[in-house]
Amino acid sequence: MSSIIDQGFIDDMALRHLDAAYNLGRWLLGNEHEATDAVHDAYLRAVRAATTYAGGNERAWWLAIVRNCCLARLATRNKTKRDIAIDDAPATAERWLPRSEADDVENRIDSAQRQSLVNRHLQELPLNFREVLILREIEELSYREIADVLEMPIGTVMSRLARGRALLQKALAEHATSQVPHGL
């Protein structure tokens, strides 16, 4: 158990950056329920790991924990999906299994009609590019902070950011041209 001081510091920090944490989780996992659970997991983990915090950027430290919790959830989700595929009786299995990504995609497309175009294209980007765009453009983290959150070199952050931006610009541009009537 760490000291009272460490605990207070973690609580304070988690609550101060809770929206950033939740937003990241929501964009990585795609639904409210799992994002809430993942951030809650991350908080419990941060409290236990308080003594490993060695100074430096607190927001990056905290978001790195949040991201790891989200990735762990995605990993089990994908594993569950594989399990269904090899199951002989998928109908019985589906009744009690948690929502898989396949359900999610349907949900997403359904609700996407109401969501903005940008939201949809952003959600459809591969996770690698999506997360770096969220952290840079929406949460406004610096390259250094993003590198700390993603636990990768700054060079990789820069190339992913460039690629992510290009992909999103392309998707939005294609959508725009497909909307333009012929003969214009």
Binding site: L15, L18, A21, N23, W27, H40, E137
Partner: peptide, 17 residues
């Protein structure tokens, strides 16, 4: 920044913490 959602943490999450 204008159109993509920045999802705010639900009250449920704050309450749990």
């Amino acid at each position: 920044r204008d159109e993509a959602s920045r999802h705010a943490a639900p009250e449920l999450l704050r309450a749990r913490i």
